[in-house]
Every structure is written in C-alpha cells, then in structure tokens.
C-alpha cells in the first residue's frame, strides 16, 4: 500500500495532509482500516466545531470494533466527507483518498511537529508487526 509522502501520520493511525497554509484534511491510514476490517459505520463531527489536538473528532465502526479518531492538530471543522457516511466501506478501499474524513482550519501548524513522516510511520508499523 502506498503511504503518500506529503502526509503526516499519528501513532493512533490518523493521517494529516496540508491543503494550504491554514487548512488540512484528516483520515485514517491503510494500516488502521486493515486492522479494523469491514468498516460499516462512520460518525463525523458537526461543521463549525472547534476541537483541540488529541480530542475525539469521530468514530469508525467495523463489524469487529468501534474506534475513536483523534485530532492530530487543534482546529475548526470546515468540511466532513458525507460520502463515507453513506458508503462507509470507502474507508477500506481508499483510506488515503476518497475516504478522507474531515477538513479543518488549523490553529497552529507547529502542533504537527510530533507527527511522523512516511519513513518514520513505515518504521513505526514495522515495530508493531
């Protein structure tokens, strides 16, 4: 699976992508969806909601389990992916693309300094195996 080089990754298996200087997109990684198995339900936040780094922004439920998703940076929700509310399995088939979950206006990009780049995340996954 291709982990995009321009994404940053959290230890909770969320990804973060800068869209421009002040906004970004957030989703769960290929590894996360693979661990969960068939995703059947996604709960997303309301647009306009302000969340702190490490706050729960949503829930992904598979047949097996429900897991919380955490904000990799603080920010305001400016868009949610309504497509995955109807077709949750997109999180399995395209977690890094069509399966994005939310878009946020970020408070401070420096908060993302603890996120991993692609190489670090792949090394992190290696350790988990």
């Amino acid at each position: 699976m291709n982990y995009p080089a321009d994404f940053r990754y959290s230890k909770d298996h969320e990804w973060f992508k800068m869209i421009d200087d002040s906004t970004g997109a957030i989703g769960i990684t290929h590894y996360a969806q693979d661990q969960l198995g068939d995703v059947v339900f996604v709960e997303l936040p309301e647009i306009g909601k302000k969340l702190e780094k490490n706050d729960v922004f949503g829930v992904v439920e598979s047949v097996k389990a429900a897991v919380d998703c955490y904000m990799p940076l603080s920010g305001e929700i400016i868009a949610i992916n309504e497509l995955i509310e109807k077709q949750a399995d997109i999180l399995n088939s395209d977690p890094h693309g069509e399966g994005w979950m939310i878009k946020v206006r970020i408070d401070n990009p420096d908060e993302g300094s603890d996120l991993m780049d692609k190489a670090a995340y792949l090394a992190f996954l290696e350790e988990l195996e």
Partner: peptide, 8 residues
C-alpha cells in the same frame, strides 16, 4: 483466523 477475505 479471524478472517481470510473479509467478515462480510
């Protein structure tokens, strides 16, 4: 084995 292809 919890699954081979997918649970569904």
């Amino acid at each position: 084995p919890v699954q081979y292809s997918s649970i569904i």
